[in-house]
Amino acid sequence: MKILGLLLTFLITSSCAPFRDSPFSDQLIRKDRELNSANHHKLNALNTGTKIKIAIFADSHQNYKDLDRVVFRINQSDVDFVVGLGDFTNSGYNLEYDQFLDSYVRINKPTFTVLGNHDAIGAGPSLFRKVFGPVNYYFEWNSYRFILFHSANWENPEEFNSSWLKQTVDESNFPIIIFTHASLRDPERYFEKDAINFDEVIKNAKVKMVINGHNHVYWLGNDNNTTLLQSPRVEQTQWLQLEIENNQALIKQMATGEATSISLKN
């Protein structure tokens, strides 16, 4: 009887187990693909107004409970779209990508994701391209150009390209907001040509804001009249709501309720 019970338990649990060849491969269980461009199409279907509202979260790693709480709160908000600033895994494994997506796809608004440094190790770059699309991407909406930039130069040097960012900024006919994982002023990571390119990007008159994650704490600063905003990690249900209207930005730290109003450069 005991054997029968054990066997039944095994049969029941084994029926929930798909085949995955290895944690090191780029095989995914979930079928979500090209999510950044798919959500761009969703965003284009929305009406535009004078105000843009964006929800921003970062660095969930394997903290799925707080991520789920943030997703729940974002879904109750009236933001236009959402940006995740990367580091949604610890080690870029395929099962971590699947686990993150299980929460991510529950966001009921167009959502975009940037590659973080943790997401870019191992098979991470291949997994990211499968799920989200190119590691560097931009879209235009409501007379802004939004750039999603891959900043993980140590982890994925093959696709890191500071010249792409500079070119995408130079070619824009719209004001620009850049989303990236690591700060473009990170002195540990960026030198010489990359530091020069990023300096020119930040000083460009069209670049209104550069928003990053990576360092896990909230920070707001000004660099050559460009607003630099750093998102905290999702721990303790931290996320940001950014509202932009007529060159004014209102940044709300949603966990604490604090709000800061700033003028963006003309």
Partner: peptide, 11 residues
């Protein structure tokens, strides 16, 4: 850590 214990991702 996960409140959504969808076993298929973990085993």
């Amino acid at each position: 850590n996960n409140s959504n214990k969808d076993l298929q991702y973990y085993i």
